[in-house]
């Protein structure tokens, strides 16, 4: 994809954008030596820009307008995907994709949040913020998968469950809660990958799994940095500080023991090279699948529940810190 024709680059990426533009120019001119020189500069700049990202920059990367979304990954990792629609009760929620397909030769049910690319699609997808019917569709398809012993892949990328009147009327809280309970009991492998924003309960509602992964530049948090800043300092503009306080990056979650693995992204982030990002994601999915597939369904369930049971930091009376 030509680098700069589309907008959406972040402020701190501007030097890179300039180089990418130059590269395009000299390539058009056929100046081979110059092309090589600029390519080298680009690689060096990427290393410089992206190797020391602050927590807030990670948040921006996770929300990057050019970042691949669920359907972009499905297109690249999955053969013969059939999207399935609707919760059989109220409607179909375009903010959640659900369907069946094969990754290499392995059958999968895939469920994921879906954001829109242009303004029209963003609105149609409600910025990736599901309504209850979205979560109910997701559960319907996951339950379907479990009954036919089909493993499940969940791709998580949402600012959160939608806070609106209809969502409340139709039981947003209940829909999320039910997914948490039911996903815990599904007797098939569930692989969860946070690919962008893991926005609180709206993310967790499709993120109860046996292996929980995050892409390198994904974030996952109980509250948005903006929301946290508004509560802590009554100032939503202090999101940058809040992002650090919340410990919401992939390395943070790995060290807190909440996720199992970080899925690498291409140099400079998934948005630089969708194909490569998809390749790395697919590799992680299959490796984890082959491991989980050796375990019987009942064992998966008891380990999954034990996993969540073990999360919590408190002290018992004897003052033994327990993790």
């Amino acid at each position: 994809m030509p680098a700069t024709q589309n907008q959406g680059w972040l402020d701190f990426e501007q030097p890179l954008v300039e180089l990418l533009d130059r590269l395009e120019e000299v390539t058009a001119l056929g100046a081979a030596q110059e092309v090589e020189r600029i390519q080298k500069q680009i690689e060096e700049l990427k290393l410089k820009l992206y190797s020391q990202l602050t927590p807030w920059q990670r948040v921006q990367m996770a929300r990057h307008p050019r970042r691949p979304y669920t359907l972009d990954y499905i297109e690249r990792i999955c053969n013969d995907f059939v999207e399935l629609h609707g919760d059989r009760a109220f409607g179909d929620d375009p903010a959640i994709i659900a369907g069946l397909g094969k990754i290499d030769t392995v059958p999968f049910a895939i469920v994921g949040h879906q954001k829109g690319r242009d303004t029209k699609e963003k609105l149609a997808r409600n910025f990736g913020m599901p309504h209850p019917e979205g979560y109910r569709k997701a559960l319907r398809i996951m339950d379907l998968a479990a009954r036919f012993e089909v493993p499940i892949l969940c791709l998580v990328d949402t600012p959160g469950a939608y806070p609106g009147i209809g969502a409340e009327e139709r039981g947003q809280a209940e829909a999320i809660a039910r997914n948490l309970r039911e996903m815990a009991l599904l007797e098939v492998p569930i692989i969860v990958i946070v690919t962008g924003e893991g926005g609180s309960g709206g993310a967790l509602a499709i993120a109860v799994g046996d292996r929980i992964l995050m892409q390198e530049n994904a974030v996952y948090s109980v509250i948005s940095p903006e929301g946290c800043a508004a509560i802590l300092w009554r100032d939503g503009s202090k999101a940058e500080e809040a992002a650090a306080v919340l410990k919401m990056t992939a390395p943070d979650l790995l060290s807190l023991g909440v996720i199992d693995e970080i899925v690498p992204e291409p140099p400079g982030g998934a948005h630089q090279d969708w194909d490569e990002a998809a390749k790395l994601l697919k590799k992680a999915v299959l490796a984890n699948y082959y491991y989980l597939n050796t375990l019987p369904g009942s064992e998966l369930v008891s380990r999954r529940i034990a996993r969540f049971n073990s999360i919590g930091v408190f002290q018992t009376p004897e003052n033994n810190p327990r993790q």
């Binding site: 999320i176 809660a177 948490l180 309970r181 815990a184 009991l185 609180s200 309960g201 967790l204 993120a207 109860v208 996952y220 948090s221 109980v222 919340l246 410990k247 919401m248 943070d252 979650l253 807190l256 909440v258 999954r304 529940i305 969540f308 049971n309 999360i311 919590g312 930091v313």
Partner: peptide, 13 residues
């Protein structure tokens, strides 16, 4: 933070 979010999954499971 994220630890408290996980309590939702823990109790529901």
């Amino acid at each position: 933070g994220i630890i408290s979010l996980m309590q939702m999954a823990k109790t529901s499971a």
